[in-house]
């Protein structure tokens, strides 16, 4: 399908995706609960920093960091690995392959349309808390705010296509969910999801700088809470978009190779 036709179909894809998200009410509540890890870490670190700052982080810094993390995580994560893995294993991918639209466009629409609802409760609450408790440290220049806005779709695209690549591995391995577990471990450390990268040993910081994970979460978070400014922030966002482009290309290449092996089991 050409880009024009895909764009014309997009409003309907998004609308139907939204209707599907609403239909799966229980799943959506569970999802909201699973993205609350930053709140757990928030409780932990604020008690560590209760008496005195921990390295460069005061108690207020931890609050700002994890609230920002909660917001970015809610806006950028998805369950596309699980979806692709199941569709390949059970053969339901066949139905998607019969439609004249790239499967990635279909997956993207489903997951984008779920963002508003999934972020419905967590994000407004976190934004209110963040603004009320940490106004002093938040992004304050128009330039940095623009970079923040640019970094959010960058983070979404990068995260989404890395997850698509993991899901696509189900063409080769019987369950790509095992790979996803490994990924989640590395991601949690190198993206700053569990602990701010600034508090990590130097060597982990170096590794993180050369891996895509920090661009999925830490970079938007750092811009939002004013720890990344101006030229440095611009460079980081540029690197993030380069990673995002690489992920898109990588996912396409992997998909093209994998689809040749598709066996359409049971379907």
């Amino acid at each position: 399908m050409n880009a024009g036709a895909t764009l014309r179909a997009m409003p309907t894809l998004l609308r139907v995706g939204f209707a599907e998200t609403i239909a799966y009410r229980a799943e959506f509540v569970i999802w909201m609960l699973t993205t609350t890890m930053p709140l757990v870490m928030l409780g932990l670190w604020t008690s560590v920093a209760a008496e005195a700052p921990f390295q460069s982080f005061t108690q207020a810094d931890f609050v700002a960091y994890y609230l920002a993390m909660l917001i970015v995580r809610n806006l950028t994560s998805s369950w596309v690995v699980w979806q692709i893995n199941e569709e390949i294993r059970q053969g339901t991918l066949s139905m998607r392959l019969l439609r004249p639209i790239h499967p990635f466009a279909g997956y993207a629409a489903t997951h984008l349309s779920a963002v508003p609802l999934r972020a419905l409760i967590a994000v407004p609450v976190a934004v209110i808390l963040l603004v009320s408790s940490a106004r002093g440290v938040l992004v304050d220049s128009v330039g940095d705010a623009a970079l923040l806005v640019a970094s959010l779709p960058g983070a979404w695209i990068l995260t989404f296509f890395v997850l698509v690549m993991i899901g696509t591995c189900a063409f080769w391995v019987e369950r790509s969910m095992g790979l996803f577990d490994v990924y989640l471990g590395v991601f949690s450390v190198l993206s700053g999801y569990l602990v701010p990268l600034a508090l990590m040993p130097r060597w982990i910081q170096v590794v993180a700088e050369h891996a895509p994970f920090r661009y999925m979460l830490s970079v938007p978070v750092e811009i939002l809470i004013g720890r990344l400014h101006g030229a440095e922030a611009a460079t980081q966002v540029a690197i993030q978009w380069a990673w995002a482009a690489a992920a898109v290309l990588g996912a396409h290449a992997l998909w093209r190779a994998g689809i040749r092996r598709y066996e359409a089991f049971g379907a």
Partner: peptide
């Protein structure tokens, strides 16, 4: 058409799948 597989979205009325196909098949 596979008698043992379906393209209809399980939790939505078929009209939604029809609308989706209209958009996708342009």
């Amino acid at each position: 058409v596979m008698g043992q597989k379906q393209q209809l979205m399980w939790d939505l009325p078929p009209a939604e799948t029809f609308a989706l196909n209209r958009a996708i098949f342009d």
